[in-house]
């Protein structure tokens, strides 16, 4: 059975090898220049993390960094759609399950061997891809000092995503018995679960650290936060995110000594002219408006301060292992369900 599984997987394996060789070629060709540029910028800046040379180095390589990140992000989706979904659905569509199930092998063993062969390839391919990209991007990631910004494109979590996508594809193929619907379900399932974990589960894994600091009248602005997907909040004071290297800032709230948040009524009463007049994103605010803003924040700051919750950079690997374990657990559940469906399958 191992021979059959390997033989059926041969084309997929070669595709992965070609893709990995292509990525490796680009990585090996460009990494030395990247390392040299990083060293030069580091030399020019010394211990100043915000010096223009480092910023220019990061900006010059933004496009390449984004593309490599996308490759790692998309790889699990491709594995789920093109390795997982057709694995069983393709057998049903071609009727070959009736050929192989008529041999002296149990369905459970048949599925187990196919899962182990393609699952191992999934782990190896994703691990190599992630390792290549992580190594290539290391100088840029070091300069950016924002490890959580590329959390799902580096190190070991892409392996968890790929395993999950693969198992989801296999299970979707087993349920639908059609390759195309299984592929579509896999992509939708991966996207949904990734958003769910990133937005709602990951922030709950470890209690964040909390730090309080006074409002800075020079840097605190006014506006609204959020995004199109999850909604834009009401306009209020917007303190500048504190500079904590490699930290994942989870929230910045303005509260009084009793912990009560700043309300719109208090803000309007203290700063009646806030939000009026020219300025905003279209251009710099006039000096008079800036001064009014400064005075407003100073007055609010007499009773209120900002509370920052964040995950420090030294928890990065805890998050990596935790998320890998989570996706590994869900993968195991999906495989268990696939076994259950297969044993009950008749017809």
């Amino acid at each position: 059975m191992i021979w059959l599984a390997l033989r059926q997987f041969r084309t997929s394996a070669w595709t992965a090898v070609v893709g990995l060789v292509a990525v490796a070629s680009v990585v090996v060709a460009t990494r030395p220049h990247l390392a040299d540029a990083a060293a030069a910028a580091q030399h020019a800046c010394g211990s100043d993390a915000h010096c223009p040379a480092l910023t220019a180095f990061a900006l010059d390589n933004t496009a390449a960094r984004t593309v490599f990140g996308l490759v790692v992000t998309v790889a699990p989706a491709l594995i789920g759609a093109f390795w997982g979904a057709p694995m069983i659905a393709g057998e049903f569509e071609a009727g070959t399950h009736r050929l192989v199930w008529a041999q002296s092998i149990s369905r459970s063993r048949w599925l187990a061997v196919k899962l182990v062969v393609a699952g191992t390839a999934t782990v190896v391919a994703t691990a190599l891809l992630s390792a290549l990209v992580t190594w290539w991007a290391a100088p840029l990631d070091h300069a950016a000092a924002a490890v959580y910004g590329t959390f799902d494109q580096r190190d070991i979590v892409p392996i968890g995503y790929a395993l999950f996508a693969f198992a989801f594809g296999v299970t979707a193929g087993l349920v639908t018995r059609r390759t195309l619907p299984a592929m579509a379900l896999t992509l939708a399932g991966l996207l949904t679960v990734r958003i769910l974990v990133t937005e709602w589960i990951r922030p709950l894994v470890f209690a964040p650290r909390v730090v309080s600091m006074p409002l800075d009248p020079d840097t605190t602005g006014y506006g609204s936060g959020g995004n199109i997907l999850f909604g834009v909040g009401p306009s209020t004071l917007q303190p500048t995110t504190p500079d904590i290297p490699n930290a994942w800032i989870q929230s910045v709230r303005i509260v009084d000594a009793a912990g009560e948040p700043l309300t719109d009524q208090v803000l309007r009463a203290t700063c009646p002219t806030l939000g009026q007049g020219p300025g905003g994103p279209a251009g710099p605010a006039p000096e008079a408006v800036r001064q009014r803003m400064h005075d407003c924040v100073a007055r609010i700051g007499e009773d209120y301060h900002q509370v920052v919750t964040y995950q420090p950079g030294d928890r990065y690997w805890m998050f990596q292992w935790w998320e890998l374990a989570l996706f590994g657990f869900v993968t195991a559940l999906l495989c268990g369900y696939a076994y259950y469906r297969l044993r009950r399958f008749r017809g």
């Binding site: 059926q8 071609a94 009727g95 070959t96 009736r98 050929l99 008529a102 041999q103 002296s104």
Partner: peptide, 18 residues
């Protein structure tokens, strides 16, 4: 079937095209 003492050819004689 597991004993291998039964041979079966399904309708349309499915085989692996590749």
């Amino acid at each position: 079937m597991r004993s291998g003492r039964v041979g079966f050819v399904a309708q349309d004689a499915p085989t692996y095209a590749g």
